[in-house]
Structures are given as structure tokens and as C-alpha cells.
């Protein structure tokens, strides 16, 4: 069901430019951090920045923050399915070492 209010809440060009700049800065930070040796935290930092960028794109460029509940439910569903993919895959990767590998 289309929400008539969706059309009236388009953000200003200025706010889009700000988001674009934020995304470019975040990309620069990702590149810079990749050159530092943070051990396992390199991945954590890179994924955290990527998640923030994803949220900015979804909320502002894709207008999710002005969308109706059904659209938000669809987005939440997508994130839930990503969580299922990661969680059940990790049941393998996180527990693979417990029994060890036969012959090693």
C-alpha cells in the first residue's frame, strides 16, 4: 500500500551532499585503517564502517527513514535473513576447531 506521505518527505539536496561527503570520508578512513596493523581488529573496523555506510545509504538515499511500516519490515526482513546466513555459517566456522582434524 503506497503511503501518500512518502512523497512529501524527500530530503533536501544539501542533506544528500552531506551524506555523500560522509560516505566518501568513510571510504577514506577504511582505506587508511587498512594500512594500519590492528590484527583481527582490521576486519572489525572495516565491517563496522561498511555497516554505517550501508545504514546511511538505506536511510537517506533509499528514503527508508520516511517509509511506511511495511517497507521497514521488508528491510528488517532482509537484515534478519543476512543474520541467518552469518549465524548458521558461523556454527560451522566457530566450532570447527573443537574436535580437531583427524590425522593432524
Amino acid at each position: 500500500m503506497s503511503d501518500p506521505h512518502e512523497q512529501t518527505h524527500i530530503d533536501s539536496v544539501g542533506s544528500y551532499v552531506k551524506i555523500l561527503l560522509a560516505l566518501l570520508v568513510a571510504t577514506g578512513v577504511t582505506t587508511a585503517v587498512a594500512r594500519l596493523d590492528l590484527g583481527a581488529f582490521n576486519t572489525v573496523v572495516a565491517l563496522s564502517i561498511a555497516s554505517v555506510k550501508m545504514l546511511l545509504v538505506a536511510l537517506f538515499f533509499m528514503h527508508i527513514r520516511h517509509s511506511n511500516k511495511l517497507t521497514k519490515l521488508v528491510v528488517a526482513g532482509g537484515l534478519l535473513w543476512l543474520a541467518i546466513l552469518l549465524l548458521l555459517t558461523m556454527t560451522d566456522f566457530a566450532t570447527r576447531g573443537i574436535l580437531g582434524v583427524p590425522g593432524k
Binding site: 548458521l88 556454527t91 560451522d92 566456522f93 566457530a94 566450532t95 570447527r96
Partner: peptide, 21 residues
């Protein structure tokens, strides 16, 4: 969507993941 690992019981997948799947 919660059962795919049953295709992978002999793939080298962790036994614990196999039990869950």
C-alpha cells in the same frame, strides 16, 4: 532457509554445525 548445512555433512563442516542443521 535454516537447513542448508544438511547438504554438507561430509564436506569438512564442523560436526557441531552438522548437529544443528
Amino acid at each position: 532457509f535454516l537447513v542448508w548445512g544438511h547438504h554438507m555433512f561430509v564436506s569438512g563442516q564442523s560436526l557441531y554445525a552438522g548437529m544443528v542443521f
